[in-house]
Amino acid sequence: MAVKHFEAEVRREPSGAVLDLRGEINGFAQEALDAAYAEAEKENPGAILLNFEEVDYINSTGIALIVGLLARARAAKRDLSAYGLSEHYVEIFNITRLSDFVNVFPDERSAMGDRRQQENLKPEA
């Protein structure tokens, strides 16, 4: 079976930066994922959304990479959410307890909607 390589692109949206992930998240994805995350962090967004719609394989090393991103986001007090996970990967997020720490949404619209709601709830400075 042909190995699908990993790609990640950054999109800027009013509610935060979106990381569009494509392909397989395994040990070989580390460099591209780290670089894309660093790019997403550049404008200091309040939230980063991980889009898993085009991800079709994650192994345990790949999950560890996502935990690494989560640790970076928490250290910067930045919200990290995920959407577009298939049922199988929602289950993997449950098994690994990642779902206790990452908000998981079915699609981009609901993830953005939640983000806007959170922004509106923030007390004015």
């Binding site: 394989y57 289950e91 449950n94 098994i95």
Partner: peptide
Amino acid sequence: PKEERRPRDAGHWARY
């Protein structure tokens, strides 16, 4: 549909 395809890694993970 995406949910019906069995992912390649499905049998490799422990159950919850």
